[in-house]
């Protein structure tokens, strides 16, 4: 119990707001690495996922690549990429590693969002004379948005926790407190910063949960019965975050 109190004392000490290791600075670093990595992953994985979802081709390949990529140990991946890219370009290496970790979830969210749409709706849209682009932009993207955001949510959670490791290769972020405290056995600092990281992850999760809820089209929330398969969770939630829909 005293340990928890010590951790809180460490966390709320005025010293945490000053100096080169001030929490706001490290927090911004942490969010910067998370944000940029998820963004880059989204720029790569969303178009590919939409292509797979729209055409129905390449699905098996995407599933197996995603599955394999999900099994990668984050720490190992980070170290391997740093060694490959070179320690002088550690920030780049770290972002590459985080992007690789984020891609499977985003990819799964993008294609499963489209895949989950009732085929008859898409068939009807095509039969009315929509072009393939119009089907994608006016039907598949809006109806697939909740699952895409679910994928982004999983990716962001995975990256936000993994960015903690960035401190190990000298890149800052909230992990710096942990890596600095371990050799000195400063348990208050270790626990205090761990609490901070957990809270950050919860906040990120909550923000995405909210976005996801807002993204469900009105016509689907308004209905008495939803026939789209989008109402069942599509992509696996590796972080144990069920995709909330109601």
């Amino acid at each position: 119990m005293t340990l928890v109190l010590d951790a809180l004392a460490w966390l709320f000490s005025p010293e945490r707001l000053t100096g080169s290791n001030a929490i706001p600075t490290r927090l911004l670093e942490h969010l910067f690495y998370t944000g940029i990595s998820v963004l880059v992953a989204a720029l790569i994985a969303i178009p590919v996922g939409y292509l797979i979802g729209h055409t129905g081709r390449g699905r098996e390949l995407a599933v197996s690549i995603s599955g394999a990529a999900r099994a990668l140990p984050s720490f190992g991946l980070l170290l391997v990429v740093v060694l490959l890219v070179g320690t002088t370009r550690a920030p780049l290496a770290a972002v590459v590693a985080f992007v690789l970790l984020a891609i499977p979830s985003v990819l799964a969210g993008a294609y499963s969002g489209i895949e989950a749409i009732d085929r008859r709706i898409i068939d009807a849209a095509r039969a009315q004379g929509m072009t393939e682009w119009q089907i994608l932009l006016r039907v598949e993207v809006p109806l697939g948005l909740p699952l895409l955001l679910g994928g982004l949510r999983n990716a962001a959670l995975q990256v936000v926790s993994t960015v903690t490791l960035a401190a190990y290769i000298g890149l800052g972020g909230l992990g710096i407190y942990i890596f600095r405290a371990i050799p000195l056995r400063r348990y208050d600092e270790m626990l205090g910063s761990a609490i901070l990281i957990v809270v950050l992850a919860l906040v990120v999760d909550a923000v995405f949960a909210l976005l996801q809820r807002l993204s469900v089209p009105r016509g689907i929330t308004a209905g008495r019965a939803t026939r789209t398969r989008g109402s069942t969770p599509g992509p696996r939630a590796p972080m144990g975050s069920p995709i909330a829909y109601k």
Binding site: R120, I121, A124, A127, Q128
Partner: peptide
Amino acid sequence: RSIGYVLQAAGLLPH
């Protein structure tokens, strides 16, 4: 677009 098509399951856009 020049032909009207009524599908078996109405096939309306839910959103």
